[in-house]
Design a binder for these strands. Structure first.
Lengths: 149, 149
DNA sequence: AAAATAATAATAATAATTATCATTATTAAT
DNA sequence: ATTAATAATGATAATTATTATTATTATTTT
């Protein structure tokens, strides 16, 4: 008689893991959806604290991140990253790798931005614009393939 | 007899103040112009240190900032700022005030981005793009007028 | 040459974000 | 339902990038 014992490191689930919607997470989402000001994490914290006074700032940061991962909210801009500098002051656009964070130039003429009355519609006195693509760079694409099963 | 004495807080020059090009500033500019990698401040620091071993990281930060102010180099992205979150996950663009840093939505249909073969030309697997205008918001425009002489 | 101004190097301070970890809550298994 | 396993939280420490401070050195102006 042969007995095979398999010990799994983790419990296995065939279905995709669904994140549990905790009171805190729900409240953060609710409050953020009410605001149209594109708040910072500590501004969200201040709002949520009125409803859940014992919530921690770390919980707010963690959940904002998870909610963004799940596509329920968005992070703005390319902030969070470290500042980068370009020795070429002539207007041009960039593309940034989501994995290794390297930044490349977009060849001139690759993109065309056409706007009509941004200043008029927003009331802003326009100074400039910033356009950045993001994706997986060639090197990281091959790296990803190696890692795949 | 009336004697009027005017004591100026600063020496006054009719011409625009021209920043002196120090050895350190020149070297930072030179090295940055050689690099096409859009380096971070500490990467510039590492390069420049090979030539000027006694230079300080703070000097690198300071001069990168001044060089950007003078338009000789560029800062990338909207980093440096604090991360902001948007409760609306639907694709749309933004405009940010350079003075008070508030962020507003751009009304749908204000901007059209047309690109041809970004993936093909760069080798990246494109995931998305981020477009952000910047300028002076209505409130800051009036504030600026008040401050004017 | 002397006085005034500006820039630097070294380092301390700040501020935003992330990591740690004991405790509590939630989910799954028996 | 009870127990075991997993995940999330709150509190706080740690980290990291950047900015501020300051005594000293360099550069300009008078």
């Amino acid at each position: 008689m042969i007995i095979i014992i398999i010990i799994l490191e983790k419990r296995v689930s065939l279905a995709e893991k669904i994140r549990s919607m905790t009171r805190q997470r729900r409240m953060i989402l609710q409050e953020l959806q009410k605001m149209t000001t594109h708040p910072t994490a500590d501004q969200v914290y201040d709002m949520v604290r009125k409803k859940l006074p014992r919530i921690s700032l770390a919980t707010v940061y963690r959940n904002l991140d998870l909610l963004a991962q799940d596509g329920l909210i968005r992070k703005l801009g390319t902030a969070g990253a470290q500042m980068r500098f370009d020795g070429n002051p002539v207007d041009h656009h960039h593309i940034r790798c989501t994995r290794c964070h390297r930044v490349d130039d977009l060849p001139a003429g690759t993109v065309m931005v056409k706007d009509k009355g941004v200043g008029e519609r927003t009331g802003y006195r326009i100074a400039g614009l910033h356009l950045e693509y993001n994706g997986l760079c060639p090197e990281c694409q091959t790296e990803m393939q190696k890692t795949r099963v």
